[in-house]
Amino acid sequence: MDTTAGNRLGGALPPQERLTALRERVGKLAGGSLGTHRLLPFGVSAIDAALPDGGLARGALHEISGLGGDEEDGAVAAAFLAGILARLAPPQPVLWCLAADDLYGPGLAARGLAPHRVLSVRARDDRTVLEAMEDGLKVPALAAVVGEVGALPLTASRRLQLAAANSGVTAFVLRRWRSGALAAAERTAPVAAVTRWRVSAVPSRPIDDEPGIGRLIWQVELTRCRGGVPAQWILEACDATGHVALAAELADRAPAPAERQPLRAIG
């Protein structure tokens, strides 16, 4: 019965949507995420082109870690994630599980994530963070579940991926390591995440040759992506609507505000 319905539906649709419908069915048969149409595009064509189907898969597990000094406090990683969450199913709440609660509301708001959407869960350690995440992933009322962990065993990441696929709630693990050595050891360990991101701060770009800190610039690497291509970009930090933009090519060229506008408007 399902097959005929699918055929009838598919036959009446234009080719592009038929393809999407077929992909969705294949995805279901393959036991993967609940339909590949559930995507969150970045609105930056260069990034979306590297991701399968042009966006970040919802109802899946994604990993974000810091680099170059950000491993420990994960400020850049959290800001990059805040930009994604700002655009992910607002105003639904986000469950953010962590052992040491150092998230600062005004800082989240500046990256587009309304702090009142964040339900912070103060766990005791990595294990309890992962347990809380798994509980949260069973609640479809949540837009996403975030967990800040150091150690992430492969089985634990598989469970998270499975729970996310079952409920359609998107899961993010934000890795935080106490030292660079620990980071080096953990970074290469396999994780059952659909995408793995590595973000770090790079020197800011002056605005109109003004002294002081200019535009915040990040280096963003997509190190692993199921069905996609690893890639890396130099981006401007996400703005108060959660959108990132490609940074202008030349370090010394001050980009005019008008130049950045179209890139932001895409999303």
Binding site: A75, A100, L103, Y104, G107, A109, A114, P115, A240
Partner: peptide, 17 residues
Amino acid sequence: GGTPWDTERLRPLRLLA
């Protein structure tokens, strides 16, 4: 919910305890 946040001033994302 819904209280406005001041984003005018530059504030860090992580604030040490």
